[in-house]
Every structure is written in structure tokens, then in C-alpha cells.
Design a protein around this nucleic acid. Sequence first.
DNA 1: AGGCGCGTTTATACCGGTTTAGTGGCTGCC
DNA 2: GGCAGCCACTAAACCGGTATAAACGCGCCT
Lengths: 342, 342
Amino acid sequence: MSKARPTIADVASRAGVSKGAVSFALNGRPGLAQATVDRILAAADELGWRPSNRARSLSVSKAFALGLVITRDPAVLSSDPFFPAFIAGVESVLAPRGQALVLQVVSAGEDEEAGYRRLAQDGRVDGVFLSDLRHEDPRIDLLSELGLPAVTLNRPEGTSPFPAVILDDRPGTRAVVEHLLELGHRRIAHVAGPPAFVHATARSEAFVQTLAAAGLEPVAIEVSDFTAAGGIEATKRLLVLPQRPTAIVYANDRMAIAGLGAAQQAGLTVPDDLSVAGFDDSELAEFVHPGLTTVRADPYRFGEAAAHTLNQLIDGSGDVADVELPPAQLVVRRSTAHLEES
Amino acid sequence: MSKARPTIADVASRAGVSKGAVSFALNGRPGLAQATVDRILAAADELGWRPSNRARSLSVSKAFALGLVITRDPAVLSSDPFFPAFIAGVESVLAPRGQALVLQVVSAGEDEEAGYRRLAQDGRVDGVFLSDLRHEDPRIDLLSELGLPAVTLNRPEGTSPFPAVILDDRPGTRAVVEHLLELGHRRIAHVAGPPAFVHATARSEAFVQTLAAAGLEPVAIEVSDFTAAGGIEATKRLLVLPQRPTAIVYANDRMAIAGLGAAQQAGLTVPDDLSVAGFDDSELAEFVHPGLTTVRADPYRFGEAAAHTLNQLIDGSGDVADVELPPAQLVVRRSTAHLEES
DNA sequence: AGGCGCGTTTATACCGGTTTAGTGGCTGCC
DNA sequence: GGCAGCCACTAAACCGGTATAAACGCGCCT
């Protein structure tokens, strides 16, 4: 019993052909008689041969892997509901193709450039996902300089050499605001994410515009950082305003759930005294008390679509079109209610 | 300007030596004059040469990467506070060594064996982390059959050919129970994780034993699944018991936070009517209302230690010792309080 | 019969490293 | 002076695939 795994040479000699023929058969290239192909594939099968990734990598200069760099503080990353599901979606298209996902976590303070450089120079991946897109994102230039194919999650402003996979945050935000307006709210505040991020400003802008369309102005916009701690602070500042808002729209669930806690801590009852809405529909949103009204995106689909698009780009079948995903949907729960005139 | 990156041959000719000499110099092997080594390294530096991972991989039959297979439903994974921090810790030891982390997410229903098989047969990784250890875990046999080095997170029962990195959950659980006992609670219930998992039973057993040491028996133990939805259900069942518990110890924060919501939904005030404690100290624990008493582990350190240990094993410097991490610490917040006699 | 063209297959270089056997020059010793 | 022994280094095989040019067999045409 040979312990070593079979190589292409073993298959070749078993099928009575040359290495080259086996390679041709495996890759389904024309120029071999069908009978020979069958014989080769049968031999490969009997030996349980699978081509060595490492050898193929060296030979064709591909990694057969995609990369994801997550730039985020571990503590913060901890409760981000987006990435795990996104990654699962990515995985679902990589696995059948025999590709792998290489993950790199860069702490917030560190040099994220180095992360991409490493991935590129080490030849670990054939392309990367560009998440948490920022305004004037320096990574776009970096990646085109490195010659590393990429797909952006959401569309950067300005021109980008990369295809984008887009999940528009605006309709969801608009739906939240309209929902609150229908409930009679007029003094609505917003707790935004860091304005450096494209998705954070998309949400704030949709918030402002939807109010404006109804002839209203936001009671206040607190810029925060998507963390629970940030959500608490922003909420506290909002609750002491002379014109206290009757509803707060948070840019994500974590801030919303923390804000919910802060409001209760301050002696308010949600939704009687204050309506609260989030964004993401994370697992806990449904189960906190009261259940959080929020907006449900589909990060799994997002991952699938991004992986598909990136692979298209890498396989180089011409220009790759942007992909637009169905926008996030409003999920109404108990944390928002009719305004009771107090 | 040559666009192509330099190879070892370029360095060799620039330094006026053979390829072999460059390889020797790079790997710090004896047999070269110091002057020659210096000259070679200088040449490499000037050319900006870095050895090709792919070529090295093929040549030395190593992947220079470690693997992590996460078997979990994407939705559930979404809010797991453990993995992101764990991964960040792993990354912190891999990055300086030029290793990569290959991630594989297997949905709960699917064949997890295939995940490990793929990683091993594709030669993607030099070793894997075995997380969410189960009783009689079949993956241990699978991996030793595949010949893939591994490190187990926590110690499997029975003999294991792999080193273990251990974070004992029992002291933390014991501390929670003792804390509740000191507060005067006598009717304490537990919401456990799936008994298939080693860490789930470790927590339940510590719960039972600590009560027993005080001459008490649990009012009830509800077996659940670590999810928020499961936490809700278990909590509902506990709250309708004739002998309603005055305190509930949950096996993780997600169930605890959901349980908190369920209790409030049922009209109870926490902690006046019911004390609640979790496990993990996830980000939201501090910020829900009332702040959740819980147990804080350090998944980042866990990741560091696991990566170190796995690398030791792979580098094959003899037998590798198990590593025991400092146990998780009790964090007291507002969700637990003195028992007010009702 | 010789030459042409076509479909099929092989031989071999190549990817970029590592590794081993081997070579040349120098010293030291008898 | 000749030879063993060591040091520093080189040449070439090797890892396991892919790619390309050349060779082969065969029928067909003239």
C-alpha cells in the first residue's frame, strides 16, 4: 500500500499515456480522443488522484484562493453580524470550485495596507473583497497598483477599476423613517456611523432626505462608531436635548440595542416614551425587549454575489458588470409605536 | 523596468553565485562564508526579492497556512462573539511568520468531514484548529487518519493524539453560582448548551457541583442550543414552573440576553424579580438593560495560544505540551441582585 | 508511390524554489 | 611532493503539475 498520494505520473502510466495527456484530459481540453479521455479519467478515479494544488499553483501562477481583509478592532468585530454570514455566502461558491478563503484580520490601529500587500506579494490569493468601503478609499489605488483583482462591496464614489456588488442601504433606511412618520413621529433623531464609511453616509443621507421629503428636519444627528459603547453615548446625548426626540433611528443594530438599554436605564419605556429602530436584523434584534424594529439585509447573498463576481473578474471573461442586490427590507417589531401625546 | 517580480535566479546572478547558494543564505544554513551571505542578502534586498510561496510550497510540501473549520449555521454564527476575537488572536501570530489563515464555514446540516478532507487533500493547510469540541468527537479520528496536525480547543475526554489548549470554563461558572448564593438565591436554574459539546457540559456540571457543594439542587436545567431563540424558549419554560427560579444561569450571553428579554416580556423586572447571568461577556452584555452579569474569557489569547501550539506541533520539535489559559473571570453587573423576599 | 493534412499523442521545457551529490582549491601533514 | 581532508560553492535533480512544439500514424489525393 503506497502511502504517498498518487501523482499525475502514476495516472499516466496506469492509463498508458503521457503526463501531458492526463493534464489535457483533466482540464477538458480538445485534442484527445474521447476513448482516451475516458480511460484516463477512469485511471485517475481508480487511483483516487486529485491534482496537487501546490503544483498547479506554481505552474499556472494562480492561488485558487480569494482573500478578505477585515480591518477592525477584535472587540468590535466580535459582535459584527455581517461578516460571518457574508463569509458563509462566499464559501458556498468557493467550495464547489475547490477554492479557499484566506482571511486576514487587521486591528484597527495597524497598517491595513500591509495586509493587502502581504496577500498580494505572497501570491496567496487571486483577488480580494473590499469591504467597509470608505470615501476616497485609498485601497482602490493600492490594489490597482498591486495588480490584484478586487470587488467592492457597494459602489465607491468616483471611478473605480473594479466591479461593485451593491446592496443599497437607502431604501431600507427610507422605509424605517417613513414607518416612523406614519406612526405620527415628527421629532426623529439619527445615530450615524463614522462618516468615513460609504454605507454610513448612505444611511444618514437617506435619513435626512426622507425627512426632508416630508417637510421635516432631523431633531439631531449624532455621529457615532457602530459600537454598542458608542450607541450608549450618542443616546445619552440625545435624551438630554431640550427637544427630546420621540424616535431614534440607529445606523446599526448594535448601537440600537445599546441605545435601547440606555433609554431604559434612563427610566424611559420603549416604545411608549421613545421609539427605536436599528439596521441589520441581527440575531438578538428579535429577542431583546421590546423586539427591535430594524432593516433586514441578506449578507449571505451578498457573499455569494461578491464571490461570483470576483471569480468572473479573475477568470477574465471580459468586463464584469456590477451586481445590484435586492435592497434591505423593513422588519417591524415592538420597539416602534404610535406616538402617544405626552 | 522589469515588471515581473525577481526570482531566485535574478538574485543569484546579481550576487554572482548559484541559486543554491541564495537558498542557503536565505534559510540561514551553514556552509557559506559570512561575506557571501552578506552579499547575497544585499542583492536580494536591492532587488526587493521575496521567495515565492508557491514554489516553496511545492518544493517543501508545506502550505504555510493553518486552517479553521467552523461548523455552524450562518445565522447562528452571526452573533457568536468567540470566533472573530479568536481569529484575531490567531492572526497575530501567523502574520509575522508569513502564514495565512484559511477559513472554512460549513453549514450545520452539511458534511463537516468533507470540510476537513478538502483542506487536507488540497494541501491547503499544515494543520487545523479543532473548535467546538464534542464528546467522542469523530473529528479526532478523522484528522489522525488524514495525518493532519491539529490542536484541540479544550481537552477532549479520552486520549487524543493532539495537544490541547485549555480554557477551563468551570471556575467561571462556579464563580457565578457562588455569587448568586451569596446574594441569597436558593432556587437557581440553568439553561445549558447542547450536551454534545464539551464546553456545554463542563458548564452544566460546574453549575450542578457548585450547588451541590452548598447542599442545594438545581431547580431545573433546561437544555438549549446557545442561540437566542433557544434561550427564549428555555426561559419561557422556566418561568412557568410552579417553583419559579429566582435566578437563571445561562451557558452563554446570547441565551442570557434573549432570556432577559423574555423575562421582561413576561412582566418580570430584572433583577428584582429574577436574577440573570450569562457567559462570554460579549459586547452587548455591558449595554443591555440591566447590564448583564457574566463571565469574561479571553478568546484573543486563546487564539494566540492555539496558533503557537499548533505551529510548535507542525515544526515538529518533539512532543508539544498542553497549554492552560487563565480561567474566565466573573463580571458582576446589574442583572443579579439580592433576593428580595416576595 | 510520394506527399499532404489532420487528428492524436508524446517529449520536454518551464514555474521558482530546495536539496543532494559532487567539484575545485586550499591547507596541513608525513 | 603527494595525498587526505575540509571548506565554500556549484550543478543538477526534484517537487507535480501545465504548455508548446514536434512527432507520429493514417487516410487521401494526385
